[in-house]
Design a protein around this nucleic acid. Structure first.
Lengths: 170, 170
DNA sequence: CTTAATTATTTTAAGTTTAAAGTAATTTGA
DNA sequence: TCAAATTACTTTAAACTTAAAATAATTAAG
């Protein structure tokens, strides 16, 4: 049994629940920032965050992507991609077409309008992030990137034991 | 106009788009971990992640919380708290009651069953996180916590200019 | 005192999310 | 060949999310 001193020392700092505290901080921080980015994307460009994410993935692939690949890259389930792409097609930002050689496959590709709209969005989106992190030491950003990557890697290896997580490398 | 060398030096490392890269890494990492925690909470305890979050907040307040406070602390909108609390009441994990002195106010409070169930969940939840971060250097965890907090603080101050973000201190 | 403003919560509509079941096309293997 | 398995996508149901409108209770102001 631990005495008062050990309990206090363990909880106040260091060993105690740092993993939990860090996780809660990561979660609340990304939630906070996501909410604001979502708000701005809606107000300025009338798109949702997942829609922006889909557009971003398609923008790097001028020939388009299969819905399955899109699903992996955005970490959005297959079932969800269907509706997302449907709405974006309705808005004229992308087109869908069936592959002739394998008619199970649907490829989504940005329209010219979608491409130019996304480029406007991406520019604003990046500048919001730059502004947000304006006062952060560049070395801190680099170190954060590398340490967060370490956690991501741990999640991929430890959690992958159960599932089959292949993609999601970004 | 920048020459090739400057362009290359700028993009490959350091200045370029580190803010964007860090943000995408933070987002994909929290999404990945959330997905697995959600999966395990569902399988082992039959609760969702937002429900777990509500229970966690109520667990620290034996006298219960107003729905508005619950909304702030969980960063869940008012409208959403209604349904969440409704389902948790149906499952017998909490009770709602109207305040006599101000009948606009509803207070939610854990039942005895809710309290003991949450404690089981919290124990498992914490051990999953410890396991996930097993190989991380404790100093890295501490440094991550402090740097992520810096970003959170920046978001609260920069974004608060527009909105009125008071709570969300955790 | 009584209407107007404010506060707390609920409702609504559109969209996203997960998990699971369903459909269609293609590939495999007996 | 042709039934069974696999693959790609869609559909479904329940829950969550946001933003905005609606309801109800209290407080404030004239």
């Amino acid at each position: 049994m631990l005495n008062d001193l050990e309990l206090a020392a363990g909880d106040v700092q260091g060993g105690g629940k740092m993993e939990l505290r860090l996780w809660l901080r990561l979660l609340s921080t990304t939630k906070l920032i996501s909410q604001e980015l979502r708000r701005r994307l809606r107000i300025e460009f009338n798109v949702t965050l997942p829609q922006f994410d889909v557009l971003a993935q398609l923008h790097r692939e001028p020939d388009g992507l299969r819905l399955g690949d899109l699903s992996q890259r955005t970490m959005v389930t297959n079932g969800n991609i269907t509706g997302l792409v449907e709405r974006l097609e309705t808005d004229g930002l992308l087109v869908r077409e069936r592959l002739r050689e394998d008619r199970r496959v649907t490829v989504a590709r940005l329209t010219e309008h979608g491409r130019s709209e996304f480029e406007r969005m991406a520019h604003a989106h990046e500048s919001w992030l730059k502004e947000l992190m304006r006062d952060m030491d560049p070395e801190v950003l680099t170190s954060l990137f590398s340490h967060v990557s370490e956690i991501k890697h741990a999640a991929l290896t430890r959690f992958a034991a159960t599932d089959e997580l292949d993609g999601a490398l970004d």
